[in-house]
Amino acid sequence: MPIELIVVVVLAVLGYVFGQLAERRHFASIRRREREYAELLTFSERRPPPGRWQTALVGGNVVVSVDYFKRLAAGLRALIGGRVSVYESLLERARREAILRMKEDALTRNAVMIMCVRLETASITKGKGDQISSVEVYAYGTALMR
């Protein structure tokens, strides 16, 4: 077996084992913190509820990298087409984590809710063939304080 292929197999196994482990732990942490911060409401609505509010821009961002196994699976998927489910879970984690970090930012300001929540995403290594690509997800909104 040529050395390149052995490297591919070893990296894919490592990527899978550690990637899955990290993913499982991350989802557990996300679920726990979502329950913890459930009191802090978030909305995409632009206008705040009637009343007098202090406002502040709050945000949270995450940069996640694709593991080698996910890249390989997505590379094979690219030949055939269809849902790239390995990336779906990755981006789901990034979105929820970004919102959680935004909430953490808002909680430090004793906010009661965040209005006008938006998500932005950017890929960090775009079109670079041989590089592990990473994606940034940024969540921001207007925190309302009494």
Binding site: V8, A74, G75, A78
Partner: peptide, 14 residues
């Protein structure tokens, strides 16, 4: 030409 993944390329070559 249809993939830029080096892993997939090594596999195809093999």
């Amino acid at each position: 030409g249809i993939t830029d993944s080096s892993a997939v390329r090594s596999l195809i070559e093999f």
